[in-house]
Design a protein around this nucleic acid. Structure first.
Length: 507
RNA sequence: CGGGAAGUAGCGCAGCUUGGUUAGCGCGCCACGUUCGGGACGUGGAGGCCGGGGGUUCAAAUCCCCCCUUCCCGACCA
């Protein structure tokens, strides 16, 4: 036995430098420590857990089957709630006439630098170039103009699952890729109040519910400052999550667009009073970035930790045996267990690969974040037990083989709750309320996290913080303090404050 | 676009300063054998337009010139 231990230790690459130099071995060896080099750790997890890898096209990635399975489960969680709140899916084209994009002034200005343009097609130069959608407001509102005649046509509550392209300067797997997958909802309403209520419904009942209940990620809900607002929006709502390195990540966004797009695209309807009115709008989206959020918020030094609600594989079974007799006994005992777990609705997989030894499999499934592992060998069979390993706690414990299918769902629910609790505790520990500007600057630098302070609402103060610390206002929280009840002075300039702001370094 | 670095086997790298046998190492891959309860080992094997073009030289991965590509640091961003 000793020879294997020694060989394994020799092959192991414990320092992040060594691991970085040998990403070829990361899958089978060690990850950089999270605390020492977070970006390297992140990249190694994405690649090593076989979620995704850079593609042949700059800034884009290939999402591998395991990563895509996670995205599919996120899709299902979000899509279910989109439907539950009364929306329907449809689909608009990828290519948008460039003239259409130019109609909403702020919108073009915001997106122009990052759109990809198709200038040639069918072997000829196009008279009018087509842009690849960076988002679909323009083509959708140009179309809505044809669909909306009367208040009886409203509301329009539509959503599409699609890909978009934004020519970002600094791409990063899942977090910021040139092409990404997302869901974009676009609704049209009769009144301002209704549109605002829609934006808030999406924020809370669709996004907060999906991200907190399924991704197990606590999020701060709130508004964006004018500087951070979506190009063309009147108000942008956000959900900000905190990653393990203390940086904030915008995990979803819901915009109240007022009548900006309706006016730009002439979306008018005859109202109840017989007068012509412009429609009120919202748009909202979540993206494949959520997969990145999952990795960065829940991951540990052994790799990914997936919340059971989203784990493509919730339970992996590693059978252990040497001889053919042992193999027969273990497999025989396993068959009814697997069947019972499946019947109980558990996503279970048996790792019966002959070419890998158990230790290798343990590490691989831990890297991939499978919440529960069951080890079954001759010793366990003799006792009528299995060894249950919880990925969230990294703990093993024996569990009776009998009644496993009743025990496991409770364990999975426990892991789901534990991951949320850990992330919430981390966020609480990394949320600060300094009383001076000097303190604010210091806290952003070390240890980092959400640093809250009262703000006068002026861009000048926001810019100053950014210049001094690189931190931006991530969110103007909707709770606990409504803006009207703010008493005090701006932490930056000392003038009377109008807002509570949460600053953080962001991805 | 401004500042830095790198292109050699599927991946990660050495070789280049000081030109010279058949271009090397680790991992991975293939075959066989021994192994198998925390990342096993042995033996054998396959795999290279040394980023592209041009030059210098008897001779270029190595020296010179041009080009291309990628990565990192700043501005943009779900």
């Amino acid at each position: 036995m000793g020879q294997y231990r020694e060989a394994a230790a020799a092959a192991r690459l414990d320092s992040p430098e060594a691991a970085l130099k040998r990403p070829d071995r990361l899958r089978a060896v060690a990850l950089p420590k999270q605390s020492e080099d977070f970006p390297a750790w992140y990249q190694a997890v994405v690649k090593g857990a076989e979620l995704a890898e850079p593609s042949l096209v700059r800034g884009t990635m290939v999402i591998r089957p395991y990563g895509f399975a996670i995205w599919e489960r996120i899709q299902q969680a979000v899509d279910r709630r989109i439907k539950e709140t009364g929306h329907q899916n449809l689909y608009f084209p990828l290519l948008i006439p460039s003239k259409l994009l130019e109609k909403e002034a702020e919108h073009v200005e915001g997106f122009a630098p990052e759109v990809a343009v198709v200038t040639h097609a069918g072997g000829e130069k196009l008279d009018e170039p087509l842009v690849i959608r960076p988002t679909s407001e323009t083509i959708i509102w140009a179309t809505y103009a044809k669909w909306i005649q009367s208040y009886r046509d409203l509301p329009l509550l539509y959503n599409q699952w699609a890909n978009v392209v934004r020519w970002e300067l600094r791409p990063r797997l899942f977090l910021r890729t040139t092409e990404f997958l997302w869901q974009e909802g676009h609704t049209a309403h009769e009144t301002s109040e209704e549109a605002m209520a829609e934006a808030r419904t999406i924020l809370d009942r669709v996004y907060r519910a999906s991200i907190e209940d399924d991704l197990a990620l606590p999020v701060r809900l709130g508004r964006k400052s004018a500087a951070e607002r979506f190009a063309g929006a009147v108000e942008t709502f956000t959900l900000e999550a905190l990653m393990r390195d203390g940086r904030a990540l915008q995990s979803g966004t819901s915009h109240y667009l007022g009548q900006n797009f309706a006016k730009a695209y002439e979306v008018k309807f005859l109202g109840r009073e017989g007068k012509e009115e412009y429609a009120w709008a919202t748009s909202w989206g979540v993206t494949t970035r959520l997969v990145g959020a999952l990795i960065m918020a829940h991951g540990d030094d052994a790799g990914l930790r997936l919340p059971p609600n989203l784990a493509p594989i919730q339970v992996v079974i590693v059978p252990i045996y040497r001889s053919d007799e042992e193999k027969a006994a273990v497999t025989g005992a396993l068959t009814p267990v697997v069947a019972a777990l499946k019947a109980a609705g558990v996503r279970v997989q048996t790792d019966d690969r002959e070419e890998y030894r158990p230790g290798y499999k343990f590490n691989e499934w831990e890297l991939k974040g499978v919440p529960v592992r069951l080890e079954i060998g001759p010793k366990d069979l003799a006792k009528g037990e299995v060894v249950l390993y919880r990925r969230d706690l990294r703990q093993k414990s024996p569990v009776p083989l009998k009644g496993l299918e009743e025990h496991i769902p409770g364990v999975l629910a426990g892991i789901q709750a534990e991951l949320f609790a850990q992330a919430l505790a981390f966020r609480e520990a990394r949320t600060f309320r300094p009383s001076t500007y000097e303190e604010l600057k210091a806290l952003i630098k070390d240890p980092g996290g959400f640093v809250e302070g009262l703000w006068c609402g002026r861009p000048a103060c926001e810019d100053r913080v950014k210049a001094d610390t690189k931190a931006t206002i991530r969110v103007l929280p909707l709770d606990p303090v409504p803006p009207t009840e703010i008493q005090g002075t701006c932490i930056v300039c000392g003038e009377p404050a109008t807002e509570l702001a949460a600053w953080a370094l962001a991805y």
